[in-house]
Design a protein around this nucleic acid. Structure first.
Length: 668
DNA sequence: AGGGAGTCGG
């Protein structure tokens, strides 16, 4: 690296024509005048060099020239400063070029030069050169200090050499090479947390605490964040109270970490409580805090509140960014509220923000998922017109859109045309196409693309195997799917809850329910936790297999596993209870459903209404039908026929019934 | 004069 940088500043200057311009100045007719202005007589004793104007490489080169041509021998400080502004504008190679040139010119470099140069190498992930530079300085009698060592520790973490980083830190402590300071300790604690070694980080913190080293809010916050990210919020709180006990007060970052963790788990009440607590301490939330809250609300489907929150950020004088809007847009799209999604999309430019490729991808996904392929294609051309290049995600969305409408010819065309536009396929695009072909009933093509994955040098994933396995079970046979499952395990590709759920469903569909139940234990033994869908599949199997009581037992067991039954599960149970004539239990289940704040959907209403109509309690069904109309739920045709029959029998005397039937028919 | 750190996001 550093040697590559031997392209010295001089070469660069030649290439960029600066030297030429400079010599023209010197030899031009204006040169006497120029030299007058640039002479020291007109400059203060300490040369005025404005480093704040450095924005790009050319500025660095210009300043380098300026420093070099100063009458008075420029001090090493000026060159150091030039290196550090180069770092500020992320031009690490240029900074090292300056460094090389300093050495070439015989500038007497110092320990500051060393730290900056070492930092450059670290940021370029060239840890070898970082140590070489330190060695070089050592030979010249410059001892590395806490800054140099801290930078090296950071560098080691940056290149995933955690063990070496810790070893270096231990060595520094053991041999007392320097006194560790807050920044160095932070690098160690944060580095360990970010590599998933939170417990180790905690042990270190404890050790450093008892040795009396200074720990600050940064370090504690890093550890708290580590625990939060590792799903150990309890431990995070322990650290929080410990830091307060040590007289270090949490700040906005500390709280934001915890709030973020709650939001990720969709525990919005807790998140908002934390917000409350921090505001009581007069700590103002910032954009990070709000980003987490917006995301959490969107995850919970509370988009309206998310929108309110986003608007309130502006009122507070904070500036939300495009990602915040994209999050909200995604929330609306996932909910299928495309009108609101469009409004947000159109609002973005008014807020002084610009649509980016993610904005377009999000809206495209929403449109194609809600069947508005034409609108999606129009948006795509608008995107291209605006100069935003579609990426592999854009293509995936469109291919998926075609697949879900069974338009496999177009899906395939797009798949092949991607390469021409320089967009490479990844495992995701393959999975989408495989799923599409399975859905379209074309196993041969699905297999063809499945086999192509490894041929084109891509790595199979859990999803690729699971998708193909699902297709086989549905279109071919359970045993073919089972074979692929075994192949998957043999290739050491780990099945996930999704994989197991499909297999369990397969067992149920071929009426091998007991094996499904046994397989649930296998899954758990392998450390894969069944989720609510997994249980749903089993409950469905038991219901359909006339084993309703076992289904009820499994259902009652859910909450003790920390799982909340979803609306599909309630629907299955309700349907089975009605079919078995266990009306009372069905009613009780409905009450429980309401208590658990599980929102009934169209299917729920159809089940209820159908069973009321069937048992000739049409009048009890009317309020449900009204609610269905209000919520624009589709009413089953069987129900509509039965209602017409009812009207005929009653010879149209029942006005209330007539009215609702008219309304239902108009809507369906 | 140097490392200047910890929270967010598709």
């Amino acid at each position: 690296m550093a040697r590559r940088a031997v392209v010295s500043a001089i070469d660069l200057i030649h290439r960029r024509g600066f030297l030429n311009r400079w010599s023209q100045h010197q030899s031009g007719i204006l040169s006497p005048l120029f030299s007058l202005f640039s002479s020291e007589a007109f400059q203060p004793k300490r040369s005025r060099i404005d480093f704040s104007c450095v924005k790009e490489v050319d500025d660095v080169i210009e300043l380098f020239q300026k420093i070099k041509s100063m009458r008075q021998e420029p001090s090493v400080r000026l060159y150091n400063k030039l290196m550090s502004v180069s770092v500020t504008i992320e031009q690490y190679y240029i900074a090292l070029d300056v460094f090389d040139e300093m050495l070439r010119m015989g500038v007497s470099v110092d320990i500051y030069t060393m730290s900056i140069a070492v930092n450059c190498c670290c940021l370029l992930k060239d840890i070898y050169s970082a140590f070489s530079i330190m060695g070089f300085f050592l030979k010249r009698g410059h001892e590395p200090n806490v800054v140099t060592f801290g930078t090296l520790i950071k560098g080691l973490f940056l290149v995933n050499k955690e063990a070496e980083a810790v070893k270096l830190f231990e060595k520094i402590l053991d041999l007392k090479l320097c006194e560790p300071d807050g920044i160095m300790i932070l690098h160690v604690i944060d580095g360990l947390c970010k590599t998933g070694q939170v417990i180790e980080a905690h042990d270190w913190l404890h050790r450093l605490e008892s040795s009396g080293w200074s720990l600050d809010v940064y370090t504690y916050s890093a550890l708290i964040d580590g625990f939060c990210k590792g799903g150990m919020v309890d431990n995070a709180f322990k650290v929080l109270s410990k830091m307060v006990g040590n007289g270090i007060l949490p700040d906005v970052v500390t709280y934001s970490s915890i709030i973020n963790a709650y939001c990720k788990e969709e525990k919005m009440e807790e998140a908002e409580n934390m917000l409350e607590i921090m505001m009581q301490q007069h700590i103002c939330p910032n954009v990070f805090t709000y980003s987490s809250l917006i995301e959490g609300l969107c995850l919970k489907g509370e988009i309206g509140r998310a929108k309110q929150l986003l608007d309130s950020i502006v009122e507070r004088g904070l500036k939300p960014n495009i990602v915040n809007y994209n999050t909200l847009l995604n929330g609306y799209c996932k909910k299928g509220s495309m009108d609101e999604a469009w409004l947000i999309f159109l609002e973005i430019p008014d807020k002084g923000l610009q649509h980016d490729v993610h904005t377009y991808n999000t809206l495209l996904d929403g449109l194609s998922k809600s069947g508005k392929v034409d609108e999606a294609l129009q948006l795509l051309s608008e995107m291209v017109e605006k100069g935003i290049s579609p990426n592999v995600v854009t293509c995936s969305i469109l291919i998926d859109g075609y697949c879900s409408h069974g338009e496999m010819v177009r899906a395939r065309e797009l798949f092949y045309s991607m390469a021409e536009t320089g967009i490479n396929h990844n495992i995701f695009t393959y999975c989408i196409l495989i799923k599409g072909y399975c859905k379209a009933g074309n196993l041969d093509e699905a297999w063809r693309f499945f086999d192509e994955i490894s041929r084109v040098g891509l790595k199979h994933s859990t999803v690729s195997y699971t998708t193909m396995m699902h297709g086989l079970i549905r279109l071919s046979s359970f045993s073919d799917g089972w074979k692929l499952f075994q192949e998957m395990e043999a290739h050491n590709i780990h099945p996930d809850p999704h994989t197991y759920t499909i297999l369990l469903d397969g067992f149920c569909r071929i009426h091998r329910i007991s094996e499904a139940l046994a397989f649930l234990r296998v899954m758990e033994a392998k450390g894969v936790n069944p989720n609510i869908v997994t249980y749903g599949v089993l409950i469905n199997g038991l219901c359909k297999g006339q084993r309703l009581d076992e289904a009820i037992r499994l259902f009652n067991h859910l909450r003790s596993n920390g799982l909340n039954p979803n609306v599909q599960i309630y629907n299955m149970m309700l349907d089975s209870l009605y079919n078995e004539g266990r009306e009372g239990e069905a009613r009780r289940l409905m009450e429980e459903m309401e208590r658990s704040s599980c929102t009934p959907n169209g299917v729920t209403f159809n089940i209820i209404v159908w069973n009321l109509v069937k048992s000739r309690k049409v009048h009890e069904a009317i309020p449900f039908l009204e609610e269905m109309c209000r919520r624009e739920f589709v009413v089953n045709s069987d129900i509509i026929y039965a209602l017409h029959d009812e009207l005929r029998i009653g010879e149209g005397k029942d006005e209330k019934l007539q009215e609702i039937v008219k309304k239902v028919c108009a809507q369906n």
